[in-house]
Simulated scan of single mutants.
Amino acid sequence: MSAGPIEPCNILIVDDMEENLVAFEAVLGPLHQHLVRARSGEQALKAMLRQEFAVVLLDVRMPGMDGFETAANIKRLDQTKHVPIILVTGTEASADYAYRGYSIGAADFITKPIDPWVLRTKINIFLDLYRKNRQLASHAQQLDADRLAEISRRLTQIELLLRDSPETRTAALADRVAELERAMGAVLPGRAGRP
């Protein structure tokens, strides 16, 4: 069974210099993904609130909100906190750049001048993780839907039992209700173990 064509993912590229954005687009073009540009930290945050991204490629040195501050703001928002960030630094980057970046939640670093093969490899790893996480989330939703359908079926059985037999045995009904509560405990957080 074929999984079908792979949908392109969104990649956010953040740099204040046009020539760097063009270079990143040239390097990442062969991946055939949807590349979105931002020229500042503020533009990056706005873009992230408008659409979902698989990964962010973020320059550290920008005027105004620098890459560290932008990354920290991305990681503070519930909607964007799980998006991996690759910080891009110049060759003059000090050792404390790595500490600062990882402490605010950056997933990786890459140094200019960029090795195209290394950058595409890193981006591909994050794209694969993004797709697998989406598949897991979809699978979990399907399992929840199946469990809820089973609970609905059992509720219907209990309703029919009550409607059809006014003198229903209390023990049989109690057993069905307990079975239903166990099923609900498997689907609804906080319900497990409740009487």
Rank of each mutant, 00 (worst) to 15 (best):
T91Y: 13
M48C: 13
L35I: 05
D66R: 00
A72L: 01
M48H: 12
I85A: 02
Q33E: 11
V36Q: 11
L45H: 02
L77C: 14
L28S: 01
M48A: 11
K75V: 08
A72K: 04
L45S: 06
V27F: 09
A95K: 09
A95F: 12
E25G: 11
T89R: 00
E69G: 09
A26Q: 13
N20Q: 07
E19Q: 08
L77K: 14
L31H: 00
A23K: 07
M17I: 15
A23V: 12
V36N: 09
T80R: 05
I85M: 05
E92G: 14
T89P: 11
T70W: 05
E19G: 01
A93G: 07
D78W: 10
I74C: 04
F53C: 01
A23Q: 05
R37A: 08
H32Y: 12
R37I: 03
E25T: 07
P30S: 00
A23W: 03
F24T: 03
H34M: 13
N73F: 04
G67C: 01
L35D: 07
R76K: 02
L77T: 15
Q51V: 11
E25H: 12
R39D: 11
A47K: 02
V56F: 08
V36H: 08
D16G: 00
D59P: 06
A23C: 10
T80A: 09
T80N: 09
V56G: 06
T70R: 08
N73R: 13
L49H: 14
G67W: 02
K81T: 15
T91S: 14
A38Q: 00
Q79K: 01
G64N: 03
A93W: 07
M65Y: 10
K46P: 11
G64C: 06
Q51C: 06
I85D: 01
M17H: 15
L57V: 10
N20I: 04
L31A: 01
L77Q: 14
A38N: 09
A47S: 11
K46V: 13
A71F: 03
V27N: 05
Q79C: 07
R61E: 13
D59V: 10
R76Q: 01
P30A: 07
E52N: 14
L21F: 13
L77W: 14
K75Q: 06
Q79Y: 12
R50P: 06
L35R: 02
V88D: 09
L58C: 06
V55K: 04
V27P: 05
V83Q: 08
D16C: 03
K81E: 15
A23I: 11
L45C: 07
R61S: 11
R50M: 08
K75A: 06
K81L: 14
L58W: 02
T80D: 09
D59Y: 00
A71E: 02
M17F: 15
P63W: 04
K75S: 04
L58T: 02
N20S: 02
S40G: 05
L49E: 15
L58Q: 09
E42Q: 09
G64Q: 07
K75P: 10
L77H: 15
T80L: 08
E25N: 00
A54Q: 02
E92N: 12
D78K: 10
N73C: 08
D78E: 11
I85P: 08
E52Y: 04
F68Y: 05
E18H: 12
V60E: 00
N20K: 00
I86H: 01
L58I: 03
D78H: 11
K46G: 14
H34Y: 13
P30V: 06
E42I: 09
M17Y: 15
F68W: 03
D16H: 07
F24R: 04
